[in-house]
Design a protein around this nucleic acid. Structure first.
Lengths: 345, 345
DNA sequence: TTGTACGCGTTATCAA
DNA sequence: TTGATAACGCGTACAA
């Protein structure tokens, strides 16, 4: 019972290359992965044979034989949220010239989905794992602890990393944004929050800390919803907040989408910004500096987070174990017209 | 020379399941892939053994043995552009309950990158391929023709599909948007375009056709740039257009980002919208209907395009060959305040 | 309906 | 530095 046709469809294999180059298959394999361990002359012959045949290694066979896939597993809570879209772009860009592929999945802000996907990913023995946030479920945490590969938690930092972390403090972001509004002269500053995932909660905590420190906190100033964030929602939340507390003189928005909704509603209702209402957003989307009036926001470095998460993982794969497993990329407060309240008011 | 340790790290394999269930390995394999071809009793035993061991099939071994990976290759020109982010989300959502994984890559609007990535993808023998647009390079086109799997071209439709297509006519979109402005009473309607990829070019062609049909076309009305689109750029292009042609009374923007930039600039410069300048965008982002004034736009069904692209590919994988290989999902003109010019002007 | 033998393309191991 | 051999875990082909 001899093999009839090659099942693979006739693509050149490593054996073909080896034959053409007049060497053993394993030498071809080595020449491709660890060129320095193969003599110069053979390396050249092999290189030529590879090009002549247009040989491409089969990633599946490679993964099977080495029990390790050249894959980065990436878990994010949303694909359309611009913040995560940019993180993902950073990851892809950093990996495009490496042999590693990206395996991306959307957890839809669900810990259980994250767990399920993690299990799925792990079945491929990824080279590294990048997960969002620090609030994994217990089961997910266990999976990560035993992943057997570098793990990077992104977007946030906290005291107890699985392995490595890169991000910034959302609590501090909320505190700084709120303090800025207080310093700018606003007193009845509301908090507008959508979806209220863990990072939103921490921004809210930062807001509350700042307000309490100034003796200005009032629970009626806080308006939140579990609904997904959108510009439309920003408008609605703002209306609710205003109805609840007509003396509101500013809002710190959980993110820029909401802030934009507030801005548009102010235009529509002829509410003067920043005179009557001050607005601060979060993330600093491109458009915030072009808006009229331009909108104060907290600039976060999400593309860079994606890039450096990859850098850290790559280093760990290479055997380096950095002293500093937690990287705080911080954020920048961008002061703009929407909180530039005239002093003489 | 007996096998010492399992290289794989001790995960249960199909053989372990077979042993525990007291059947042959191939029966386990079948029970998992074609349950109807295995007797009820064995199926139950196997199912139990699978759960007891926590067995998960190794996708790499599976791909190697079957010469076909359970992977959808997806090529998009941008990850952060909201339009493609939603397409991608639709694809992921539709595939999340299937055995198929997604292999996503970013072509950065480059035909050459697309070619390179296509080659990379093909080396994995994907189950299907989803590519953006219809303007592949010749080499890419050849690769697609010989892909040996269903291919879906998305976002656009055209006369000569590789295999299947789903999208809409960008030319018609441009034409309808422009006609609407003409009918609303605008005469010196400018075109603002960024990046000018093939789809943007076709929208421009649609704009031109509409303007020429009305005897209103003037090349000086067209302002474009190869630069990536952004809200900031919308403002800048608008300023340029106005400087070039102060009598401008409307703009059709290649996309909503630009339209928003125009809107903000009008606020800043105290230009009345829609009285002095009318604005129409493209894609109809959520925020367009909340903006003040709300902005007329062409609503495109990108999430649905992602979903249905998967549906079509899945059907083809299942052996169905639909009569209709080209699916036009169309678009909707959303008339809003930004083009509601008072009749008595 | 179920099982046996073998091959998929590559890498790990060990010897030369 | 190079090579022979044996896995890696699964599916295909064919026989029972």
């Amino acid at each position: 019972m001899k093999p009839r046709t090659r099942r693979g469809g006739g693509r050149p294999t490593i054996a073909d290359v080896a034959r053409l180059a007049g060497v053993g298959a394993i030498t071809v394999s080595r020449a491709l992965r660890e060129p320095e361990r193969v003599s110069e002359s053979l390396r050249k012959q092999i290189q030529q044979a590879v090009e002549e045949l247009g040989y491409l290694p089969d990633p599946n066979a490679r993964a099977l034989a080495s029990a390790r896939a050249e894959v980065f597993g990436v878990l994010v809570p949303s694909l359309t949220n611009n913040v995560f879209a940019e993180v993902v772009r950073g990851i892809y860009d950093s990996l495009s010239d490496s042999p590693f592929r990206v395996q991306l999945a959307n957890t839809h802000y669900s810990g259980l989905e994250e767990e399920r996907l993690l299990q799925l990913f792990l079945s491929q023995r990824p080279a590294a794992l990048i997960v969002s946030g620090i609030d994994q479920t217990e089961a997910a945490r266990r999976l990560l602890d035993n992943a057997g590969c570098p793990v990077v938690q992104i977007m946030e930092i906290g005291p107890d990393p699985v392995d490595m972390m890169i991000g910034f403090s959302h609590f501090e972001g909320g505190r700084v944004a709120t303090n800025h509004m207080i310093e700018a002269g606003y007193r009845r500053v509301g908090f507008l929050g959508a979806r209220m995932d863990p990072r939103s909660q921490r921004r809210l905590a930062g807001y509350r800390a700042a307000m309490e420190a100034a003796g200005l906190f009032d629970p009626r100033l806080v308006t939140t919803t579990p609904v997904l964030s959108s510009v439309t929602l920003g408008r609605d939340l703002f209306r609710d907040a205003l109805a609840k507390m007509p003396s509101l003189d500013g809002v710190f928005c959980n993110n820029d989408d909401l802030a934009l909704g507030v801005l548009f509603e102010c235009h529509r209702a002829s509410i003067a910004v920043p005179q009557t209402i001050g607005i601060t957003g979060f993330n600093d989307l491109d458009m915030m500096q072009v808006a009229f009036p331009s909108v104060t926001s907290i600039r976060t470095h999400r593309y860079e987070i994606g890039r450096q998460a990859v850098t850290m993982a790559l280093a760990a794969i290479g055997g380096e174990r950095p002293e500093n497993r937690i990287k705080d990329l911080g954020f920048d407060l961008k002061r703009r017209e929407s909180t530039a309240r005239p002093a003489d008011r």
